[in-house]
């Protein structure tokens, strides 16, 4: 038996204490520090989320995941509220259902959710009637929302429900920003910012209903600090941010998820070894992502991995490899 001079292993942390509490009448025991949402998932209780992602710091902004904690004045965001011993939680009380329904209606009446996966089912499940707030107001002109002054707004038009509608922004060849579809979940800002990429090309600007995702002075992306890693696209829950090929194929009606295969491989560039999930349709790569749970990438890539595979696409450049078939 050899001994070591000092401990060389990773310092072990004190084991987390278990705590017991109740969800919908069921007793649950989890480790200290577990969120209500995580606890719910361990016992198979589904809670809808929009702004939550395992790889990002919770911002508690969408409020879709609220639950009722007995004795609390207001509902609690399950994505970030940690469980406490003896807590009594209801995930489907009338208050919870009401809040979720209204949140969904608020979003559906003000944002284009047509490309949000699972949203149609959710709206049906919660019996939402977004049309009751009035017909959606026609889209704002380009730049109009960017020009709002904090603390000021025009009086409402009684014939319409206000929306965040505005023209699609296509200012580069790699991806498209359609902020008419933005629910302001903050995920793209967090992914671009301190949580992952630390490029801070975008932030939330303005406030209230005019809060919006913006570059400095709302300049086009090529004039911003954007490095086109596309890590914002990877976390966008609504399709407001979309890679150009997907956007174009959807516009042309040729985007067909059923016809796509997804294969995990390793990025061909530097030696970090990022897992690339290649989405292939008709032998053409139509999208590259990385698994969120990958310990190296946490779903992130750089511009080369996310977009730099044109050279293996069918077409003239690849054909050149065969020009001198030996």
């Amino acid at each position: 038996m050899t001994t070591t001079l000092i401990s060389i292993e990773r310092p072990t942390r004190a084991p987390k204490k278990p705590l017991a509490f109740t969800i919908d009448g069921r007793a649950v025991t989890v480790e200290e520090g577990t969120t209500i949402l995580a606890a719910c998932r361990t016992i198979g209780i589904e809670i809808p989320t929009l702004c939550f992602l395992e790889t990002l710091r919770p911002v508690n902004a969408c409020r879709l995941c609220v639950v009722e904690v007995e004795g609390a004045r207001v509902l609690a965001p399950s994505c970030s509220r940690t469980a406490e011993a003896g807590m009594v939680v209801y995930t489907k009380s009338a208050r919870v259902i009401h809040a979720r329904r209204l949140v969904l209606e608020f979003l559906a009446s003000s944002v284009d959710l047509s490309t949000t996966p699972g949203m149609a089912e959710l709206l049906a499940e919660y019996d939402c009637k977004p049309e009751r707030y009035g017909p959606p107001k026609p889209h704002a002109l380009a730049g109009e929302r960017d020009a709002a002054i904090a603390g000021h707004h025009a009086a409402p038009d009684p014939d319409f429900a206000a929306t965040v509608g505005q023209p699609v922004m296509v200012d580069n060849d790699l991806y498209v920003r359609d902020y008419a579809k933005c629910v302001l979940c903050y995920k793209c800002v967090e992914a671009c910012g301190a949580d992952h990429q630390n490029s801070f090309a975008i932030a939330v600007a303005g406030r209230g209903f005019n809060a919006r995702i913006s570059t400095e002075m709302a300049v086009p992306l090529p004039d911003s600090a954007c490095v086109y890693c596309g890590n914002c696209i990877a976390v966008c829950p609504t399709g407001a941010l979309m890679a150009k090929p997907e956007f174009d194929m959807r516009a042309a009606g040729s985007w067909n998820i059923e016809a796509q295969t997804t294969t995990d491989t390793i990025c061909p560039y530097c030696g970090v070894g990022c897992t690339l999930s290649l989405h292939v349709q008709d032998n053409t790569i139509v999208k590259a992502t990385s698994p969120l749970e990958n310990s190296i990438t946490l779903g992130n890539l750089c511009v080369k991995g996310r977009f730099g595979w044109q050279y293996v696409q069918p077409g003239p450049s690849a054909d050149s490899a065969t020009t001198r078939d030996g």
Partner: peptide, 28 residues
């Protein structure tokens, strides 16, 4: 109602959109 819409920080959906929908209903 306009005050709350103006002063909402815009972070959470219930307040950001709710203050707008409240003001709209009152104007109607």
């Amino acid at each position: 109602a306009a005050f709350f819409r103006d002063e909402s920080c815009g972070q959470c959906v219930p307040c950001r959109v709710g203050t707008v929908r409240q003001e709209e209903a009152l104007h109607r």
